[in-house]
Amino acid sequence: MKLIQLSKNKILYLLIILVIILIPQNNFSDDSLNVNNISKNLRCLICQGQSVYDSNSDFALSMKIFIQEKIEAGLTENEIYDLLIKKYGQWISYDPGYSKTTFLLWFIPLLFFLFGGAIIYFKIYNSKKNFKK
């Protein structure tokens, strides 16, 4: 009996080692700067429910050419967003960004998460304590 127990443990160790060995190296194939990726995160001002990527309006088509030109000029993704936000306002970017006016937007959901975790923790902890008495 003990022997089987031991071998089971061994198999478990073996598995853990296997998982570690098999863990792939961390190299995300770097997303090359791409008009499609950038235009997905920009809002089309003509057809206001769509992104520049989705839209076929004149504005969106010109915007795609504009982004391509900026990529060729050597701007980074964030520089392109900043440039456009400067011209058209924060509204054009689907990423609301971190600022004084948006910190609550990011913070409220995270607060809820912490709050929920705390409730569950105390629920389990308290029920245990009650029954130990």
């Binding site: 992104s51 924060q90 509204w91 970017s93 689907y94 609301p96 006016t101 948006t102």
Partner: peptide
């Protein structure tokens, strides 16, 4: 509240 317009989309 602040008449500031933002878009919240996929990146968020």
């Amino acid at each position: 509240i602040s008449s500031e317009k933002i878009s919240v989309g996929p990146p968020f």
